[in-house]
């Protein structure tokens, strides 16, 4: 049985194709302005890679913020459920998932079987999401991929305590004017993002293994700050972006 999971987020769309408990193929593209088109396109790309076509798929589950607009999906399941399942497949010892995306962040308690025990999410406020890092990168004139490595070179991270992204921008500008080094400011930004999420996740609680997923998971600076914040080591799956779609594809195999 071959199944697929389609995860349409605000920034990127992902499809993963699974058969016999193994990943056959996957694709990632920017969502653009049409959820429906992005879902078709990315699924097409994944099918091409696996040398399959749509009728070969027994069951398709959609997830993510655009999940209800994927016409060819058989069922829509929330990204929290899918993330838990996906992480459980990649790292069976996972018990806590920290997911930080472009627009939101979540902390998920995962059981041994990949089901969710508890969760908390923030989708109201940019602080504590990838957006925060993007805004700051622009102000500092850095590429987003440079941010993490630079932050790790800091010896004395700044304390950025504004709760609001907009105001943090101002705070950062004045830190620069005060002569603080670039790496200290960047490290401070990473600490700020991490601490927002860490505090939010306390109601769920952190149990090992703690796994970090989502677009921001590629940022080692945030990973480091999270580890400091929760006092536990953090694992990152090889392709953190596709975890949701993978989970959706795996859940689809249960549908017979």
């Amino acid at each position: 049985m071959i199944t697929a999971g389609v995860d349409v987020g605000a920034a990127t769309a992902k499809t993963v194709i699974v058969a016999d408990g193994k990943i056959l193929s996957y694709a990632v593209i920017p969502t653009g302005d049409s959820v429906a088109r992005a879902a078709e396109k990315v699924t097409g790309a994944a099918l091409d890679q696996a040398r399959l076509s749509m009728p070969d798929l027994s069951f398709i589950i959609s997830t993510g913020y655009g999940r209800n607009a994927v016409a060819f999906a058989h069922k829509a399941v929330t990204e929290i459920i899918c993330h838990a399942k996906g992480v459980n497949f990649l790292i069976p010892a996972a018990r806590t998932v920290i997911d930080i995306g472009g627009q939101d962040s979540k902390v998920i308690g995962v059981r041994e079987d990949g089901t969710v025990s508890d969760f908390v999410m923030n989708d109201k406020c940019a602080a504590g999401t990838g957006r925060f890092l993007e805004v700051m990168a622009v102000v500092l004139g850095l590429g987003i991929e440079e941010m993490g490595p630079i932050s790790l070179t800091s010896k004395e991270p700044c304390n950025i305590s504004s709760t609001c992204t907009i105001f943090a921008e101002t705070e950062m500008v004045s830190l620069r004017a005060d002569g603080r080094t670039r790496e200290d400011i960047v490290a401070g930004i990473h600490r700020a993002v991490a601490s927002r999420v860490v505090v939010m996740g306390r109601t769920v609680g952190y149990k090992q293994q703690v796994v970090f997923t989502g677009g921001v998971a590629k940022n080692l600076g945030v990973k480091h700050s999270l580890e400091v914040g929760i006092g536990l080591p953090i694992l990152i799956p090889e392709e953190p972006q596709i975890v949701g779609a993978l989970g959706a594809a795996l859940l689809a195999t249960r549908q017979t």
């Binding site: 913020y65 399941v77 929330t78 929290i80 089901t115 969710v116 969760f119 999410m121 989708d123």
Partner: peptide, 20 residues
């Protein structure tokens, strides 16, 4: 919309727990 995501997740979570 935001509430729905949370509620649906919670419903799924409860169904799984009940089934277990």
């Amino acid at each position: 919309g935001q509430l729905r995501t949370r509620v649906e997740t919670f419903a799924e979570l409860l169904r799984a727990a009940k089934a277990a």
